[in-house]
Simulated scan of single mutants.
Amino acid sequence: MKLVPLTDRVVLKQCEAEETTKSGIILASAAQEKPQEALVIAVGPGGVVDGKEVTMQVKEGQKVIYSKYAGTEVKLEGEEYIIVRQNDILAVVE
């Protein structure tokens, strides 16, 4: 099964949370902050959204940073994904 986003939606797979700090302290799973960095899995076709033409700026395989409380979490075939609107993506990590 494959997720195919509609209009200006993007399917993201969240990057793993850091288990240790930069100084080497191991964090318990409850103390780990949910990362806002994710990998783009699928991109919608764009089109007209709210009366405006939307051109998709991200591509599959790119690493992005998205808004902290954005999107809808979905679990499919044991994998967790986040579906966000393109305007919830803040930056592309190069």
Results as ranks from 00 to 15, higher is better:
Thr20Ile: 06
Thr7Pro: 00
Leu76Arg: 08
Glu94Met: 04
Ala17Arg: 14
Leu3Trp: 06
Ile82Glu: 00
Ser23Tyr: 09
Ser67Trp: 00
Ala28Asn: 10
Ala28Gly: 09
Val40Asp: 03
Ile89Val: 12
Val74Cys: 07
Met56Lys: 10
Val58Gly: 05
Val49Leu: 14
Asp50Leu: 13
Gly47Ile: 05
Asn87Asp: 14
Lys2Arg: 14
Leu27Cys: 03
Val11Gln: 06
Asp8Trp: 08
Lys13Ala: 11
Gly71His: 07
Met1Gly: 14
Thr21Ser: 15
Val93Asn: 13
Ile26His: 07
Gln62Met: 15
Ile65Lys: 12
Ala70Arg: 05
Gln57Thr: 13
Cys15Thr: 09
Glu19Val: 07
Val48Glu: 14
Tyr69Val: 01
Glu19Ala: 08
Val10Phe: 12
Val43Gln: 04
Lys75Ser: 14
Ile82Ala: 00
Gly46Ser: 09
Lys13Leu: 04
Lys63Trp: 07
Ile65Glu: 11
Ile83Gly: 10
Val4Arg: 13
Leu27Val: 01
Ala28Thr: 12
Gly78Asp: 03
Glu94Cys: 05
Leu12Thr: 03
Glu18Trp: 05
Val48Pro: 01
Arg85Leu: 10
Lys75Asn: 11
Lys75Ala: 11
Gln86Trp: 01
Ile41Thr: 02
Lys13Glu: 13
Glu53Val: 13
Glu33Arg: 13
Val10Leu: 07
Ser29Lys: 14
Thr72Asn: 09
Leu90Ile: 15
Lys52Cys: 01
Lys68Gln: 12
Ser29Gly: 00
Ala31Tyr: 03
Glu60Cys: 08
Val11Glu: 04
Tyr66Ile: 01
Glu37Pro: 00
Lys34Leu: 11
Arg85Tyr: 08
Leu6Asn: 10
Ala42His: 00
Val64Tyr: 09
Cys15Ala: 15
Lys68Gly: 00
Cys15Glu: 13
Glu80Phe: 07
Glu60Gln: 14
Ser29Ala: 12
Val10Ile: 15
Leu27Lys: 15
Val74Trp: 06
Lys63Cys: 02
Met1Arg: 08
Pro35Phe: 09
Lys34His: 02
Val74Gln: 08
Val64Lys: 10
Asp88Ser: 15
Gly71Asn: 07
Ile65Gln: 11
Ser29Glu: 14
Thr20Gln: 10
Val40Ser: 05
Met56Gly: 10
Ile89Lys: 12
Pro5Trp: 06
